[in-house]
Design a protein around this nucleic acid. Structure first.
Lengths: 214, 214
DNA sequence: ATATTACTTGACACAGGAGTCAATTTTTCA
DNA sequence: TGAAAAATTGACTCCTGTGTCAAGTAATAT
């Protein structure tokens, strides 16, 4: 186990850099092969480090994977200011959709790792799903329900609306290969995600009886 | 290589049964661990057959996986009657959404395997994506475009509408663990998928300026 | 009944991958 | 500059998983 506690020596500039390099390499690997399919060997190659060096920073594959999941969940939490009962639904939903689409743009690997994890039964996210995550959903569903009660929008099922937003926005990160194949492109264009956000907002908001802001 | 050509002996009742058992077992395994993470050993255990027996029917892991992908694509193709320019958009889209939701209900494992395959870069579906699949999408996008041109619906981007329908419907198969965790259930209720189909239809059709049929 | 083919299965060889360790080099700071 | 901690890395062990093979048993057709 590498140093982490009190020591009169610098805990690490090198450490920080290497940890980042390793995590970046591992994200690609885990997104491409899933947890079981990923190998420490390929992660080491991608990071351009000898394999034992990876084990110097992360005791084992599981620890490395956990570190990555943690980083993903942190980002998720940071990225979303909560919505509230007094918000304008059109405004709030539109912003949320935009934020989710931008996450797909900026962190597609995170989205893929998370998606794979869920598809495969969330073996490493059980606890998160049934605690933090469930709470988040319930709170936000409550807000949507209150908007419905205030007749600010059509009587849609709040959970299904949340699932609709998640699925349609994450799709552009998770299924990028399929989409790019259809588009006959190698990569998304510069402002493709902007158009996705605005098109999705249009359909979803209008579908809920709301008028997209400005 | 097992017999397949002319032989005066029965090619196999036993064969048929075993192949089915193996494929069923393998679907669970591939959906749960992805191609690389899956092991022939666990597939054999699930199928309750000795491992070499699996190799008697499928030369190797790749062959078994290919057989499964093929079966999935066949089902996909069977399940969808094409839509056409003269169809009523509301009718046609609503039917398509319903059909896709029902595929999520009846074949969640197929959906997960397909999703994982795409997320990981479609290494085994390259050819399908850039041929058959691309054609299908282009044809259907053309129909939607013609509906737009005929002013039968709002001027939505046909591709983004197709992606929206795919993502929102497949989500209930692929992300079942997440959804069930939020719903605090062990499995979907009997008519949950019906409500999904109708709620999604409502939002998406209305979002495109259409009125849901009946 | 028997020859022929289909199917079964234990035992093996081999490769890939995880994790360890000890010896060494580099960095740090007093 | 030198002692201590951090970081690197080659070499090793052990395990899991794939695919093969040969010797067997069961099914089938004449």
């Amino acid at each position: 186990m590498p140093a982490k506690k009190d020591s009169k020596y610098k805990p690490g500039k090198i450490r920080g850099e290497n940890v980042d390099t390793i995590i970046d390499a591992a994200e690609v690997e885990f997104a491409t092969y899933g947890y079981r399919g990923a190998t420490m060997m390929r992660i080491a190659e991608r990071a351009q480090l000898p394999r034992p060096n990876i084990h110097y920073y992360f005791a084992n594959k599981q620890a490395l994977y956990s570190a990555i999941l943690e980083r993903i969940l942190e980002r998720w939490n940071e990225s979303f200011d909560s919505i509230s009962v007094t918000d304008d639904p059109a405004e709030a939903l539109s912003r949320y959709i935009h934020a989710k689409v931008m996450l797909s743009k900026t962190h597609p690997l995170s989205s893929k790792i998370f998606a794979t994890e869920i598809i495969q039964g969330a073996p490493h996210l059980d606890e998160y799903l049934s605690n933090q995550h469930k709470l988040w959903v319930q709170q936000h569903a409550d807000v949507i329900r209150s908007w419905v009660d205030q007749q600010k929008m059509d009587p849609v099922d709040p959970l299904k609306l949340i699932f609709l937003i998640w699925s349609s926005t994450q799709h552009y990160a998770d299924f990028d290969y399929q989409i790019l194949s259809v588009l006959e492109r190698k990569a998304y264009g510069d402002d493709y995600f902007d158009s996705v956000a605005s098109d999705l907002s249009h359909i979803i908001l209008k579908g809920c009886g709301l008028t997209p802001p400005h």
